[in-house]
Structures are given as structure tokens and as C-alpha cells.
Design a binder for these strands. Structure first.
Lengths: 169, 169
DNA sequence: CTTGATAATGATTTTCAGTTTCATTATAAT
DNA sequence: ATTATAATGAAACTGAAAATCATTATCAAG
């Protein structure tokens, strides 16, 4: 009996994004041994339907409007699952809470990085220079992987500073 | 009398690191209207005397050994001051606590970036590829500053993944 | 050396994002 | 339908960080 559990765990662990598994989209949830339940679908919908940088509570509130029964706990749990699986990125912009973003946005709000204003906490997404960055990052990743035997799964680049509005005062 | 206060405030505000002021080292504390007190000196000493990535509480404990009277509150406050002034960098490596590093380490443990193992939370500092990174970053910063009227004060690059030790199991 | 204005400190309290627990419910396979 | 297991949510808990506030240290001016 116990053995069976272990085997199941192995099966559902393999395709995860600790580097080896391919990232998968919404429909492929089940392929990893997870169930695409109503709460999980609702949370994905919220993430897919916004370009903002939502916190767990933001997401909870949005989900709550449609499905009042879904609790904050589930939101946290699901987000962790999504982050672990590579479907969602988790960011820290320096205020006390984490922000979440779909890693592959269906609406084609492609890959971007962030400018963070340390005064007003505004976040500016930018896509310029991404190509050059990507280039360097890939090179760096290869070098680092080799030198440190480190299997890189993802990276964060963020610029901090003062935005236009805050500079003007 | 009130006017006098306002002038003082302005004087101590100017040299800060919201971009315009030059960064300054330990001795230059007073130049910004701040007092280099015993607790502050002690905290700086701890930061200068380690290559680790200490949390606020780590720092508190180390300071506490030498100066048992210095409280956790002061550590938090001082760290915030140091971060605001640009003397110290604050990092988030994904565990629940912030980590602090002197931005210009006197021991010449020059500028570096971080590899974060998401399994064991080990942090690897690396300096390789920094030059290439610096190049690109400067270019990017210039471009972004211009396009978005954003005054960039600093940046964070971090790679996440699984380290050698954790890969082996 | 006082004195007075102000900045800094530290004990304590409070906050609040995030976790854990656990009893219950939903799901998928047999 | 039955059973094994995964998912859920209410509530209690945790812990890092911030806020409060009475006290103390510092510095500049007389």
C-alpha cells in the first residue's frame, strides 16, 4: 500500500519544472497527475485575464467575486503549485507581498522585464532590449551551468529607480 | 525657527542615493546629517566582516554578541537607512527573509551576482561574466532611462536553479 | 559646562503575508 | 457503487517587519 503511494508520487514528480520536464499549459494539468479543478481553473483564468502584477490577495479577491466559496488558502496553495510547475512566475518588487504572472500569457503579452519605482512602487513592463538580454543571459547561463554544475531553471532581472512622475517632485 | 528646520531637512536630503547623490562610505555618514552611532557602526562592522548573506536577525545576533544592548528594532531601522542611502543592498532569495550585503565591500569582495539553489537555499556568488553583464546592463539602463524617463539606481540579476549537491540526489 | 532642539534607541505591541492543521468534500480509477 | 487519494477551506498559527512611544544620546549655540 505504501509502495503504491511512492510510485504515484514519482510519476507526478517527474514532469515538473525542476529543469527536466517540459512546461505545459492549462489543459496539460492532468498530465502531471494534478487535477484541473474549478478553483485552479478560476485562478488561471484570473491570471490569464490581466496584465497587472497581482498579489495573492488580489487574485483571491478577483476569484472571490465569481466563486465566493474559494478560499485564500487554496489561492496560495495553487499559486505555489503553479510556480513550482513553471506555469507562473513569482516576483518580489520590494513591498511586502509577492506578485504573480503567467509565464506564458495566451494574449501574447510576451516575455518582459520590470522597472520598479522605489518611490511610488509603480511597475513598468518593458520589452525593449529583451533580445539582447536574452542573448547575454543564455550565454551566462551556459557558462555558469558548466562552471558551477548548476542547473538553471529561471532568472530574474529587475531595474530599480525613480520613475518620471516621482522625479518631477 | 521653523524655517531653520526645513533648511536642515533639505541639507540632509540632498546627498541621498535617490540617484543624484554620490554614494559614500562609512566615514561619510555625517555628511548626510546622520550620526554614526555605536549601533550603526556595529552593524556596519558586521556587514563588513562577513561574506555571507545575512538576514536582519543574523545581523542582530552577531551584533548582540558584542553589544547585548543593541536591539532588533535598531537593526531593522539601520538596515533600512543603509539601504535607502545606497550603502547596503537588500536581496530576496525566496525564503521568507531579506538578506543584506554591503554594496561596496572594503575587503574587495567586488561586485557579484547570485545563483540561488531552490532546493537547499544555498547561494553561490559569482563574478564571472560580470563584465559582459555590466556592458549590456549599462546599455540597457541608458536605453530604458531615456525611453521611460526612469532614473535607474540599481539592478538585480539572479539565477535560480538546482546546485551540484542537490542534483546528485 | 549647561541647555535646548532633535535624532536615535529599544522594549513592546501590532500588523499582515503566508503556512499549517485537520475535518470535509470532490475526483478518478476499479 | 466503492475505495483510495487528492483537493479544499475554515481557522489557528507563524514569523518577519513595521509602528508606537517613552527614554536616552548627540550636537550646536550660548
Amino acid at each position: 500500500m505504501k509502495l503504491k503511494i511512492i510510485i504515484k508520487k514519482e510519476e507526478s514528480f517527474m514532469p515538473w519544472r525542476d529543469g527536466t520536464g517540459p512546461p505545459w499549459l492549462e489543459g496539460k494539468f492532468k498530465g502531471c497527475g494534478f487535477r484541473l479543478t474549478v478553483p485552479r481553473q478560476a485562478i488561471l483564468d484570473v491570471l490569464a485575464g490581466t496584465a497587472e502584477h497581482l498579489s495573492a490577495e488580489d487574485i483571491y479577491l478577483k476569484v472571490h467575486k465569481v466563486h465566493p466559496a474559494i478560499g485564500l488558502t487554496t489561492v496560495y496553495r495553487t499559486l505555489e503549485l503553479l510556480v513550482q510547475s513553471g506555469m507562473v512566475f513569482k516576483f518580489d518588487f520590494g513591498d511586502g507581498r509577492a506578485r504573480y504572472e503567467l509565464s506564458e500569457n495566451p494574449k501574447g503579452i510576451g516575455h518582459h522585464h520590470h522597472l520598479v519605482c522605489t518611490r511610488c512602487r509603480r511597475i513598468i513592463d518593458y520589452q525593449d532590449f529583451i533580445d539582447e538580454e536574452k542573448d547575454l543571459l543564455q550565454k551566462t547561463e551556459r557558462g555558469l551551468s558548466k562552471k558551477y554544475d548548476f542547473h538553471i531553471t529561471h532568472h530574474v532581472i529587475q531595474f530599480y529607480g525613480v520613475c518620471r512622475e516621482c522625479l518631477g517632485c
